[in-house]
């Protein structure tokens, strides 16, 4: 009886040592597996990442001469996907027509002088400010530059903002 017990404890000893080795191997396998999974995910994501096309919507548009746009006018640019707004005080804004709520194309409603989204009824003022929710923020802007009396709009990156502010507006200097 006692002999047997002794034997079994002797047998146990190497097993215990094995156990720590096994633990180590388990962790090693786990780490290797996670690494492989991570690599696979990375390759997959890089492969599926959006392919950007240069030169289309996203380039710089020459909208026209400053005097072509009377104060208080809104001129749509189809391919540029923006409205060139000239405020009553002569300042310019290029407003991205994509609704900040859920992405619908926002038409200009001349009767009310507002941008009114058909999808869920958001309304925006001429400077893009939200007049009626559910839109969470004003319409996005594209940077406007005025060179040699010509109005240029860069559709590369829409500017998001929490509130419309006078500093958004571009003025023709001296004119």
């Amino acid at each position: 009886m006692s002999e047997q017990r002794l034997q079994s404890t002797q047998e146990n000893r190497p097993e215990e040592q094995d156990a720590t080795r096994r633990d180590f191997l388990k962790i090693a396998w786990g780490v290797a597996g996670l690494l492989a999974l991570g690599e696979g995910t990375l390759v997959g994501l890089r492969f599926l990442a959006p392919r950007t096309v240069e030169g289309e919507f996203g380039g710089v548009f020459t909208a026209g001469a400053v005097e072509d746009f009377p104060p208080g006018s809104v001129t749509p640019f189809e391919t540029g996907r923006f409205y060139l707004v000239r405020l009553e005080d002569g300042g310019f804004l290029a407003i991205y027509r994509r609704c900040t709520h859920l992405g619908c194309a926002v038409p200009y409603d001349p009767a009310s002088g507002q941008f009114v989204c058909p999808c869920h009824g958001s309304a925006f003022a001429l400077d893009g400010e939200v007049l009626n929710p559910p839109a969470p923020r004003p319409l996005d802007l594209f940077p406007v530059g005025i060179e040699d009396g010509m109005v240029l709009v860069d559709t590369g990156k829409p500017l998001q903002r929490d509130h419309a502010s006078p500093s958004d507006v571009t003025y023709a200097s001296g004119g």
Binding site: L102, C104, A105, H120
Partner: peptide
């Protein structure tokens, strides 16, 4: 026609419950 959203622009019918929620809650 990417420059003209129909009015009303609705999602597929099975998402209209969600779209209705959107009218009442912050997105």
């Amino acid at each position: 026609n990417p420059s003209h959203s129909p009015n009303p622009a609705k999602a597929a019918w099975y998402f209209l419950g969600l779209q209705e929620l959107l009218l009442h809650f912050h997105p």
